[in-house]
């Protein structure tokens, strides 16, 4: 589903963000991407969205390769990815349902199909009763649920989450993660960047990839293979 092979990323001003990162994420996995600020978590998510291209190496996402990527192909890739951010990135002057509908409208979904799908998504994230509320009228957890509903609107293959619980209190964070688990249980591949180690440690059943200074320093999948060999 997602393959990063010997990826390097350098920025002109801030220097090397990733060095020799190789990471394969299989279909249906839920992977925690952890590490300190500046470790390279968000850079990996940006490379997967092809918002940036690697300085060396290759990123492959669901058949799209960073080496062959043309600008006009990017929208097609983005429709296969749902993205959730720490700061929600909702349009403040639109209601919850309008925020979700917006993602469908701009990708050319037929008007008649938008309303039922928005209702289904808001029900899925537990916010059907707040469909007409604007972001300012919602709690942090509720806003993130709207953002998740929007990310799922175009039925993506992968959900990328960049510190999705970073702005939430413990209970809201727990609720949002439960939603991720539920979505993952339906077969969605999820890559979640987080520095919330309490959350990561509470769920040892999921794969953990740790980054430090732009390199992968720990991968629980590889560790369990090593342990099996030992």
């Amino acid at each position: 589903m997602i393959r990063l092979t010997s990826v390097y990323k350098e920025y002109p001003r801030s220097g090397t963000a990733l060095r020799d990162v190789t990471l394969h994420v299989n279909k249906g996995e839920l992977v925690f991407l952890t590490g300190h600020s500046g470790a390279g978590k968000s850079t990996i998510l940006r490379l997967i969205q092809m918002a940036d291209l690697p300085s060396a190496g290759e990123v492959r996402v669901s058949g799209f390769s960073s080496k062959l990527m043309r600008r006009r192909d990017i929208p097609q890739l983005r429709r296969k990815l749902g993205v959730v951010f720490q700061d929600f990135r909702l349009l403040r002057d639109r209601t919850a349902e309008e925020n979700v509908a917006f993602a469908l409208e701009v990708t050319g979904t037929k008007r008649s199909a938008i309303t039922p799908r928005v209702n289904r998504l808001l029900t899925q994230v537990g916010l059907a009763h707040k469909a007409r509320a604007c972001p300012d009228e919602l709690s942090g957890g509720e806003r993130q649920r709207v953002a998740i509903a929007r990310a799922l609107a175009n039925e993506p293959l992968v959900l990328l989450a960049d510190e999705p619980t970073g702005n939430l209190d413990e209970w809201a964070a727990k609720g949002v993660f439960e939603l991720f688990r539920e979505i993952n249980s339906m077969g969605m591949t999820i890559l979640m960047a987080t520095h919330d180690l309490t959350l990561v440690r509470a769920h040892p059943e999921y794969r953990v990839v740790e980054l430090a200074q732009g390199s992968v320093v720990y991968d629980s999948a590889a560790a369990s293979v090593e342990a099996g060999r030992g």
């Binding site: 969205q49 600008r71 006009r72 929208p75 097609q76 890739l77 983005r78 429709r79 993205v83 990135r89 349009l91 917006f102 993602a103 701009v106 990708t107 929007r150 609107a153 175009n154």
Partner: peptide, 14 residues
């Protein structure tokens, strides 16, 4: 700009 960013994020064409 926020709206445009979201449009690109979800796969709107140029």
């Amino acid at each position: 700009r926020e709206e445009i960013g979201i449009m690109r994020l979800v796969g709107a064409t140029d």
